[in-house]
Simulated scan of single mutants.
Amino acid sequence: MHARVVATAAAAALGTATLFSPTSDARAGEVGKPLVIAHRGASAYAPENTLAAIDKAAKLGFSWVENDVQRTKDGRLVVLHDDSLRRTTNVEKVFPDRAPWKVKDFTAAEIARLDAGSWFSPAYAGVRVPTLEQYMRRVEHNHEKLLLEIKNPELYPGIEQQILKLLGNEGWLDRRHLERLIVQSFSAASVRTVHELKPALTTAFLGKPPVTQLQRYARFADLVNPSYGSVSTGYVASVHDLDGPHGRPLRVFAWTVNDAATARKLAGYGADGLISNKPDVVRAALVAD
C-alpha cells in the first residue's frame, strides 16, 4: 500500500490542483451517492459522441460526460467510439469503395461530410462527427466536465501527447479545468504516458486488474474503471484500500449501468461513479434508494 503521507507530499510538491471528488458534484445526487456520468453523452436519447448528445446530457442536468477520441488520416482528433465509421455514419453511402471504412484512413474533411445522426433517428439527420476542438468548446459552453477516453492508442502513436497539446491549447490544463477532467484508456501504457506527461491530471484505467496488481496501477492511475458485471464489494474495497498517485484513495467508476436494479447494486458495492447511457434512470434509482 502506498504511504499516504509520502504520496500527499509528492502531490503537493508537484503543485497539483485540488483533485476531483466524486461526492463533491452537486448534480450527482445526494451526498455519498455515486457520481453519474453520461456515457458518450446521453447516448440513449441522442446519437453517441455528438454535440447533440452532450447537449442532451446538460438538459437532463448532468455535468459529467464521457467521450472517445481517435485520429484521422491527416492527424486530426475526432470524437468517435469505433475504429470504423460504418456503424454510426453513412460512410458506406458516401464512400462505397473505401471499405472497411477505418477512421485512420479518412481525412477530417472527409469525415466532416458524413451524417452521424440519421442512424439513430431521422430527427438527428445531418449531425456531424465532432472534432475534439469542437467537442471541448461545447463542453466548456455547457459548463460540463469530461471523462475522456483515448481509444485504440496502439493505432495512433503519440496520440497522448497530441491530446494533451490540444487540451492545453483549449485551456483545459489549467488549475481550474483540471478539476473537471479525467483521461482514461483500456491501455495501461497509454494511461501511464498521460500521467508521466502531465502528473497533475487525473487518470483512470479501464478494466479490472487483479487485486494482486492494483498497487502497480496505483502508481499512475487515480481510478480503476471496470465493467459493472465484474465488480464486487470485495473488489471495490480492495481498490479503495490503496492510494493513487496524488495521495487520494483509488476510486471506482463502473460501466455501463443502464437500469435501476444494477445502479442500486453497484451503489451498495461502494462504487464511486456509474457510467450510463441512461443517466436519468440511474440518478432516479439512486435518489429513490
Results as ranks from 00 to 15, higher is better:
R137W: 06
R137I: 00
R137V: 02
R137P: 01
R138V: 06
R138E: 14
R138F: 09
E140M: 06
E140S: 15
E140D: 12
E140I: 01
E140C: 03
E140R: 12
H141F: 13
H141S: 14
H141A: 15
H141C: 06
H141I: 05
N142C: 11
N142S: 11
N142A: 14
H143D: 12
H143R: 14
E144N: 06
E144M: 14
E144S: 13
K145N: 09
K145L: 12
L146Y: 00
L146C: 07
L146D: 04
L147E: 03
L147Q: 07
L147H: 11
L147W: 13
L148Q: 01
L148H: 08
L148K: 08
L148R: 07
L148T: 04
E149M: 04
I150Q: 00
K151G: 00
K151A: 10
K151N: 05
K151P: 08
K151W: 11
N152M: 09
P153E: 00
E154I: 10
E154S: 15
E154L: 08
E154Q: 14
E154F: 02
L155F: 12
L155T: 09
L155I: 01
L155P: 08
Y156S: 05
Y156V: 01
Y156R: 07
Y156G: 04
Y156T: 07
P157R: 07
P157D: 03
P157E: 07
P157N: 04
P157T: 04
P157V: 09
P157Y: 06
P157M: 09
P157C: 07
G158T: 02
G158W: 10
G158K: 10
G158Y: 04
I159E: 02
I159M: 12
I159W: 00
I159K: 01
E160Q: 12
E160S: 02
E160H: 02
E160M: 09
Q161A: 15
Q162V: 10
Q162I: 03
Q162C: 08
Q162E: 15
I163M: 12
I163L: 11
I163W: 03
L164S: 03
K165G: 11
K165V: 13
L166R: 05
L166F: 08
L166E: 02
L166Q: 06
L167M: 14
L167W: 07
L167Q: 10
L167K: 04
G168M: 10
G168R: 15
G168W: 10
N169Y: 10
E170C: 08
E170S: 02
E170L: 12
G171S: 09
W172A: 00
D174I: 06
D174E: 06
D174L: 07
D174C: 13
R175W: 03
R175H: 13
R176Y: 08
R176L: 11
R176P: 13
R176W: 12
R176H: 11
R176I: 10
H177L: 11
H177K: 15
H177E: 14
L178T: 02
E179M: 12
E179P: 11
E179K: 14
R180M: 08
R180P: 09
R180D: 09
R180Q: 13
L181R: 02
L181N: 03
L181S: 06
L181H: 03
L181G: 04
I182Q: 01
I182A: 00
V183M: 07
V183Y: 01
V183F: 08
Q184T: 01
Q184R: 04
Q184G: 00
Q184E: 02
S185K: 00
F186I: 00
F186E: 03
